[in-house]
Design a protein around this nucleic acid. Structure first.
Length: 457
RNA sequence: GAGAGCGUAGCUCAGUUGGUUAGAGCGACAGUUUGUGGCACUGUAGGUCGUGGGUUCGAGACCCAUCGUUCUCCCCA
């Protein structure tokens, strides 16, 4: 009995061309992370469900992939399991049914790691992590159920130099990849101040959710939504003024100070932003940093500066994001460890680079030389020459079947192999070989010794 | 969680108001002098039209269900 092959929804196979291109992105990011002193960490694909639950908001919890426990067919456990399953139907999580889940992001597993190991770690602790994550989302453009994140986080440091360096990392990576981006920054403190100004901190979530949608639904709809969420007309008026802030970064800051000038929380917020702008102002990347007071970000553990990356010239959701969270490990009983981090969404970066044709051709380079197989004795000589070339680090293949020229040429063509080495009976006798450049069609005859020193480009 | 589109050959797709035996291009394979490819020509293989029901004398086409997939909203990378 055979089953029709297929993939789970939202997952993909990656063939050679894709993997090579994606590795180019990974390597670029990894090199920059390491350049800034970050060290690698890997955590398991699955975590205990309770480690993840409640960390991503109500919506996020629904998107966590849960793993069904093994051994549910054990008849002795059935009475208890039936009881447990009733609770699952009510939307509760029960250890007896599902105890583990696939990781949803890299930040919470990292916080879990820090909470478990804080006694051994040297602070500030800088780690980077490149691994897939899983979300039970409905797939669509730029959205997958399995995708890679590349995170860099620093914990144990309040210094804004971290934010400055993370901004630099963003700028450097995207410059190297050739993607034109906006690095949007804001501070949660400014959003908190706005909430204070509008009747209290308890409105913060409502306000951020609504204004985050500004560029999508427009000011009128945002006002409508705020009204529905219980804000008064006066409060909405302040928010409208806030959302009307525009111009250059300096102009935006000036307008913000006018609006929230006497609020000490807001002041801390804009001082953070000004610190980053001052530190990066001498750098070339500075031009891509955009202060955006409407930036909110969904995850509610952020407390300070927040980042979001938007690629220019292409229709795609954010390709990176992050921010400061001053008490993430507090969720795991280890308080007072501040942190700040950023994340790259590799799969979306890939899609952007593909759409804008930004992958360099060298990324694809595979086999350089194909040795033709033109007979038993010919093949033996060719094989030995090939091994010598391989030992010099040149990527070679020999055609394993003895077959017509036509087929061997076509194989080279398909695999985009630029050189063929042809050794037939005549060449074997004279101890020479033909090197054919398959792109230009030029061919030259050289001795075996010369072949070893030939410059294959 | 809400909504829309699409499932026909390995791939991209045609297929008329329902009407004989299911179509093309590309790809694969074989051949056109068994030592120099990409071109051209000839030929071959490959499809229970996603699946299951229904309407009809007759369904790839119409209706219902189901599965898969793509996209939009929500939310996110």
């Amino acid at each position: 009995m055979s089953t029709k092959p297929g993939l789970p929804q939202g997952t993909r196979d990656f063939s050679a061309a894709t993997v090579l291109k994606r590795n180019f992105i990974f390597n670029t990011i990894r090199n920059v992370f390491e350049l800034y002193g970050f060290q690698p960490l890997e955590t398991p694909a699955m975590e205990n469900l309770e480690t993840l639950m409640g960390k991503y908001g109500e919506e996020g919890d629904k998107l966590i992939f849960r793993i069904l426990n093994n051994g549910l067919d054990n008849a002795a456990k059935h009475p208890q399991l039936r009881e447990d399953f009733e609770k699952v139907l009510e939307g509760k999580n029960v250890k007896g049914i599902t105890e583990r889940a696939l990781r949803y992001d890299l930040t919470i597993p990292f916080a879990r790691y820090v909470a478990m190991n804080h006694g051994q770690l040297t602070f500030p602790f800088k780690r980077y992590q490149i691994q897939p994550v899983w979300r039970a989302d409905r797939p669509q453009k730029g959205r997958y159920r399995e995708f890679y994140q590349c995170d860099a986080d620093v914990v144990g440091s309040y210094s804004l130099l971290n934010e400055v360096e993370l901004t630099n990392i963003y700028a450097t990576v995207f410059q190297q990849l050739g993607i034109d981006v906006e690095i949007r920054i804001n501070s949660r403190k400014i959003l908190a101040a706005l909430a204070e100004q509008c009747g209290g901190a308890e409105h913060m979530t409502n306000i951020t959710i609504a204004i985050d949608k500004l560029d999508k639904i427009g000011i009128d709809k945002v006002k409508e939504e705020l009204s529905q969420r219980g804000l008064s007309n006066e409060q909405i008026a302040i928010i409208e003024q806030y959302l009307g802030i525009n111009g250059t970064n300096a102009e935006k800051l000036r307008q913000l100070k006018q609006l929230l000038g006497n609020n000490t929380t807001a002041q801390k917020g804009w001082e953070e932003i000004e610190f980053i702008l001052n530190y990066t102002s001498s750098l070339q990347e500075a031009s891509s940093i955009v202060v955006d007071f409407t930036l909110a970000r969904g995850l509610n553990y952020y407390t300070g500066i927040i980042f979001e990356i938007k690629a220019k010239n292409v229709q795609m959701g954010s390709i990176g994001g992050g921010g400061r969270y001053d008490d993430l490990t507090g969720l795991f009983g280890v308080p007072n460890i501040p942190g700040v981090g950023i994340s790259f969404g590799v799969d979306r970066i890939y899609d952007v680079m593909e759409e804008l044709k930004l992958f360099p051709a060298e990324v694809q380079s595979g086999t350089k030389v194909l040795f033709f197989n033109l007979g038993t004795a010919e093949c033996q000589t060719a094989f030995s020459l090939m091994q010598q070339l391989r030992s010099k680090g040149i990527r070679c293949e020999i055609y394993h079947e003895q077959t017509k020229f036509d087929k061997q040429f076509k194989y080279a063509d398909k695999k985009q192999i630029p050189y063929a080495v042809i050794i037939g009976s005549k060449e074997l006798e004279e101890k020479v070989c033909n090197i054919k450049n398959l792109v230009s069609g030029e061919q030259q005859q050289v001795s075996f010794h010369e072949l070893m020193n030939y410059q294959f480009i």
